[in-house]
């Protein structure tokens, strides 16, 4: 609607030929209205993204972050460090690795290497996310800023919800979801850190268990291709298998080998004429 207004004004201009003063003012008014309408629509989609926080994925992530706050407390971090980590790292498995490195007194270099390895998955995830959120003419810097909010929950949520959002509104909708989810979880980290002592160990363990079970079922539910289902099954087995054999970079190998085998499997199934 906001976009149509300047177009209509231009048609009037084109039809009349005479650029009278009042018409010129009308044209400018229409342009301003169009700009404001554009702003309103963007704000509406941002709010819709915020509303996405009231969803199962977001609630489960909040449960997982309760476990993280407790872990930070147990590992001797300060409240400020725990909150800072949630806001500025925003990748739960990597945060767990980082807390582990800090708790064992690793140097910054060793910690950085461990976290870098744990976060490799973010690269293909973000690469697959870019064609989902970008529209014609989405600036590169917007994608670079927004990419900070790419983590499993927002990724899964994005692939479930964004296909139903008009393409030019996907980035702003994702921003609404990502920013809100991050801020809420910074608060959750703080609250659970403060209340950690009151939490029985079994409950803390159960909260930690939320993350893997949720990731497993949500990825299963959002998988559209054989390649993704096969990759899920192979990765779940290959991860611990390579880890148990203490293969360095085991996550990377599990991803590359599992993903490539899944891709080949997908192609073979298609060659035999199977459905998607």
């Amino acid at each position: 609607m906001g976009k149509a207004a300047p177009g209509a004004a231009l048609r009037v201009l084109h039809g009349s030929h005479a650029l009278s003063g009042s018409l010129f003012i009308n044209l400018r008014l229409a342009a301003i209205q169009g700009w404001m309408g554009e702003r309103q629509t963007a704000a509406r989609w941002f709010l819709r993204g915020m509303g996405g926080v009231a969803s199962v994925p977001a609630l489960i992530l909040i449960g997982s972050f309760i476990g993280f706050g407790v872990l930070c407390r147990e590992s001797g971090l300060s409240l400020g460090e725990a909150m800072f980590m949630t806001a500025f790292v925003w990748a739960l498995p990597s945060q767990v690795v980082l807390v582990g490195a800090i708790a064992t007194g690793s140097s910054a270099l060793v910690a950085a290497i461990a976290v870098t390895l744990s976060a490799i998955r973010l690269m293909p995830m973000t690469a697959a996310w870019v064609p989902l959120v970008r529209a014609q003419g989405t600036p590169r810097w917007q994608l670079l800023v927004l990419s900070h909010f790419v983590a499993v929950t927002a990724w899964v949520w994005g692939f479930m919800r964004l296909p139903d959002v008009p393409r030019e509104r996907r980035a702003v909708c994702f921003a609404g979801f990502g920013v809100t989810l991050t801020l809420i979880n910074v608060a959750v980290t703080a609250i659970s850190f403060i209340g950690a002592a009151a939490l029985p160990p079994l409950l803390a363990g159960a909260l930690f268990f939320l993350t893997p079970i949720y990731f497993l079922t949500a990825l299963s539910a959002s998988a559209r291709y054989h390649a993704e289902r096969l990759a899920l099954g192979l990765g779940v087995v290959l991860g611990p298998a390579l880890h148990a054999y203490d293969v360095g970079l085991h996550l990377l190998w599990a991803g590359l080998v599992g993903g490539t085998l899944a891709f080949i499997g997908h192609k073979l199934i298609h060659r035999r004429g199977g459905a998607i």
């Binding site: 476990g67 407790v70 872990l71 147990e74 498995p93 767990v96 582990g100 744990s118 490799i120 998955r121 293909p124 995830m125 690469a127 697959a128 064609p131 499993v152 160990p201 079994l202 803390a204 363990g205 909260l207 930690f208 268990f209 993350t211 893997p212 990731f215 497993l216 990825l219 998988a223 291709y225 390649a227 993704e228 096969l230 990759a231 899920l232 099954g233 192979l234 990765g235 779940v236 087995v237 290959l238 991860g239 611990p240 390579l242 880890h243 148990a244 085991h250 996550l251 990377l252 599990a254 991803g255 590359l256 080998v257 599992g258 993903g259 490539t260 899944a262 891709f263 997908h266």
Partner: peptide, 27 residues
């Protein structure tokens, strides 16, 4: 893109497997 998505999914799945098989903390 399908291959990249498969690799990303397998990597996340490997993280899932490790969180169940060799977790840290209270779990």
């Amino acid at each position: 893109l399908l291959w990249v998505k498969a690799v990303a999914t397998a990597l996340v799945a490997a993280v899932i497997g490790n969180l169940i098989f060799a977790p840290s903390g209270a779990l």
